[in-house]
Each structure stands twice: as structure tokens, then as C-alpha cells.
């Protein structure tokens, strides 16, 4: 039986990935310390609690890397100190711990030689200079390279992910390992932690239903590329063995949606049309972050859940939780 290690497997992306792997008949070992504020959940609380060949090791993955020499056919490395915008902006040194986590993972991989390592980087690794109001563009994979000058990524989280990609390059080139990386954009889903904008906006608008005016963070004009978690997982599963060794791939839809547009979509899904304004004292992040999809398309990838359907799914889920 094929065996996979999923670090950070109890987090939002991790638990969906574990579900996919189990459904494909893969034996899954999940290592997660279930840190507060990261959206990690105990398996029994997952929307679809894992059945079959699944085991959880509740432990900091760095300790696991230090003590274990098990060999896996596939390693999906998602463990990271991560959260919503507030965490990224206010806990910058805590987030920088991801540098240490990634370093330990790559060293462990070089020691145990897994069949394939899948590193979850982030769209935050892209230079912020390409995401400003005066000069933004869709972000394509080639905009990050280590052969020429490199831009400034988004906060310590972006730096950590960029460094993680560089370590992957070293692992592939100097240690002969097989590894690929993904740069997810704004993944969302019904069971995502409320510290993320998508579920937070849905939750808030449900609570404020009927109000004349509602608010979103920042100017509200900032754009993100929202992609449903089922598409994220599908994209990874369908390509991780096909990508060239050391390659990175966006996980994006190529559709930019402003927070005001998103709030409009959500409120219409709820059944009313309030005035939507920004809250300038709240963090906004970069102005425009949207992924180029050409490379994904060349692998036959196309998202199946559009934003309207994703909003409906999330609203249904949040309503069911209230009831």
C-alpha cells in the first residue's frame, strides 16, 4: 500500500488532502500539533472524519523529523504557523518560525529519501511590487526564480515560503530528491477558520442580514483569487507526479474578485442588497493578488466550483451550524 505523510494534516487544506488520499487508497500518517489559531481540528471534528488507514501523531513536526526515520512514498508538507491577515501582520516573528519548520523538513527528506515531496508554498511568496494599485498583474510561476534578482515577498510568511522554495531547489539539485511546490492563492471552503476573509465575510453578513450598510476590511477594492478547497486538492492530486522535478505551480482560478464584489455576491446569496463599504482601520494586505492560469491549463486544470457556487455552499454550511 502506498504511504503518505501529511504534516499539518489537521489544518484546513491538510484535512481535505488527507480525505482525498484515503479515498484513493493511500495509507496516511498525519503529523500535527493542533496549534491554536491555525484552524487545526481534531479528526473527529472534521467535516468527514477519516476512516480507513489513517493515523494522527499529535506532535510538532520538527520533533517528528528529529526522531523518525520512516520512509514514505509521498510527503505533503503543509505544517506552518499560518492564519488570517491579522496574524500575518501582527505575529511576524512567530510566523517566521516556518523557516525552521521547513529547514527541518528538507533535511529530514534528504535523510530518508521519500518518493516525492510536495511543498505547499504560497502566493505570498510573489513580489508585492507586482500587486500594487499602480502596477499590478496576474502572477505567473516564472515571476519567482533564483537565477536573477528577486522581489520582496509579502511579510515574514512570504519570506518563509520563498525560502522554503529555495530549499526545495537545493534538495532537488544537490541531494537528487524529487519535489514539487504549489502556490495556493485564496483557498476557501465551508469548514475554513473564521479568521480568513471568505468565511468571515459570509458569517458577518449572515449575522447582519437586513442592515442598510455592511463593511469589509481595508478599502474593499483589494482583489483576491478565491479558489474552492475541492479544486485545490484536485489540482494537487492530478499534477504532483506530473510536474517537472523542482517545479512550482499556482493553484488559482485567474479570476480576481474585490472584497466589495465578494460581499455583494454573499449578500445577494443571503437575499438582500446592502450598501457595502470599506473599513480603513482594518488591514487590507496587497491590492491585487490573482494567479495566471496558463501553466495550470496546460495540465488540463480548470476549477469546477465557481465563486457563486462556493458562496452558496459556505452559506448553507454556516446556516446549518446555527441550526
Amino acid at each position: 500500500m502506498a504511504r503518505a505523510l501529511v504534516t499539518g494534516g489537521a489544518g484546513f487544506v491538510g484535512r481535505h488532502l488527507c480525505g482525498k488520499l484515503i479515498s484513493e487508497g493511500v495509507d496516511v500518517v498525519c503529523v500535527d500539533k493542533l496549534a491554536r489559531g491555525t484552524g487545526a481540528m481534531r479528526p473527529a471534528e472534521w467535516p468527514n472524519p477519516p476512516k480507513g488507514s489513517f493515523s494522527l501523531i499529535e506532535e510538532d513536526c520538527r520533533r517528528y523529523f528529529d526522531r523518525a526515520d520512516d520512509r514514505f512514498d509521498m510527503v505533503f508538507h503543509l505544517a506552518a504557523m499560518v492564519g488570517g491577515r491579522v496574524m500575518l501582520e501582527t505575529q511576524t516573528l512567530l510566523v517566521a518560525e516556518d523557516l525552521a519548520v521547513d529547514t527541518d523538513m528538507w533535511r529530514w527528506a534528504a535523510r530518508t529519501r521519500p518518493g516525492s515531496v510536495v511543498y505547499f508554498s504560497s502566493s505570498a511568496a510573489y513580489p508585492v511590487s507586482l500587486q500594487r494599485p499602480e502596477a499590478y498583474r496576474k502572477l505567473s510561476e516564472d515571476m519567482i526564480g533564483f537565477e536573477a534578482s528577486i522581489g520582496v515577498p509579502d511579510l515574514s510568511y512570504g519570506w518563509a515560503k520563498l525560502s522554503g522554495e529555495y530549499l526545495m531547489k537545493l534538495y532537488v539539485e544537490n541531494y537528487g530528491g524529487r519535489a514539487v511546490a504549489y502556490r495556493p492563492f485564496s483557498g476557501y471552503g465551508e469548514d475554513q477558520d473564521l479568521s480568513y476573509p471568505f468565511p468571515a465575510i459570509c458569517r458577518r453578513l449572515l449575522d447582519e442580514r437586513g442592515a442598510q450598510e455592511v463593511f469589509v476590511w481595508g478599502s474593499g477594492r483589494q482583489c483576491r483569487d478565491f479558489i474552492h478547497i475541492s479544486d485545490c486538492i484536485d489540482f494537487v492530486w492530478r499534477t504532483f507526479t506530473r510536474l517537472q522535478n523542482g517545479a512550482c505551480l499556482n493553484i488559482s482560478t485567474g479570476v480576481a474578485t474585490s472584497f466589495i464584489e465578494l460581499a455583494g455576491l454573499v449578500s445577494r446569496g443571503i437575499g438582500w442588497e446592502p450598501k457595502i463599504s470599506g473599513l480603513s482601520d482594518k488591514p487590507e494586505g496587497v491590492f491585487y493578488r490573482c494567479g495566471d492560469t496558463a501553466l495550470q491549463a496546460s495540465y488540463g486544470l480548470s476549477p469546477r466550483v465557481d465563486l457563486k457556487a462556493g458562496v452558496a455552499l459556505t452559506l448553507d454550511h454556516l446556516r446549518s451550524r446555527v441550526h
Partner: peptide
């Protein structure tokens, strides 16, 4: 729904 990618775009994006 699934679109073809032009050769030039592909080369530019992925090398």
C-alpha cells in the same frame, strides 16, 4: 471550458 494554452505563453510561464 478547458482551454488550450498558446506555445508562447507556455514558454514564457514555465520555461
Amino acid at each position: 471550458r478547458l482551454k488550450f494554452v498558446t506555445r508562447d505563453k507556455l514558454k514564457e510561464t514555465m520555461g
